[in-house]
Amino acid sequence: MKCPSPAVGERGGLQVTLTLTGQEDRIKVFDQGADESVNAANLRRFIARMTGCSTTTDTTQATILQSRHRIPEEMLRDDQILVLQVPDPEPLRSVEFDTSRAQEMHAFKDYGLMWLKLYEQLVRYGSFIQGASYPVMVHKRYVMSPSPIPRWDTPKLNQSAHLTILCAGREKRIYAIPPWTDVEPLEFSDRFFHVEDHSEWVCRLSGVRHKFMNEIPLADGTSGFELSDTGYLSKALKSGSDPAQSAGACYFDADGHFHQPGFLKFEEGDARKE
């Protein structure tokens, strides 16, 4: 027997969104930043049909945003809810196999193994090698997986105006980040968390820089770059290379500076240091 709706990655997010959404809501659904992907389009149509809500691809117009692994470039407001789909909710799984024991470690704030894992990465590779799903400390108390968002999106959760709800359907776990909560990537006092370095990449469609890009392999062996956030891309295309005319304020400004000065730190001698 086959389940008519297989338990694929977006089920947790879908359950939360369907619970929250009413007829007055306007939802935006995107997958890897793209509103047009098959997965996002199917979910958006399904949610609209089930709830009678309207839909949008504009981040600033949405009341509920369901995302598979991106946070929009434009800043969310306190009247918006971000729903993140989570495949693996347990940040300690890489260091503690047993979920029951991991929960005890959370209870006692016993995160020594997590710090040791990061230290081992520094010793072996010279830098942190955690890609997406970079673990964060919430409210200076709980280590949390922010879902597999790229590191570019991780600082956007810190002291954010909006409510974030994360749900893992397969593991039946739901958790949330209240508005205006400290969400800090795990880092040492002298070795810091870094977002992906896309500073040299220019969107070949809009000319925009200093946003999260998709890298597209080209026939000649080089790469082309396009904005990952397609809602933002469509605004950038409308207004030339100056999206500020039609888009809302962004977490990273046109020069790549994060909107909370000093939150992202750089080691001495790092070229990215201002």
Binding site: A34, R70, G126, P150
Partner: peptide, 29 residues
Amino acid sequence: SVESSGFCIHYKLPHYVTFNSTVDNLRRV
């Protein structure tokens, strides 16, 4: 069984952002 088959099916969804993040680390190292 439904859960684990669903988990396998999920590999068909796009993962290019997650992969991009991993490649960034490989390049830096």
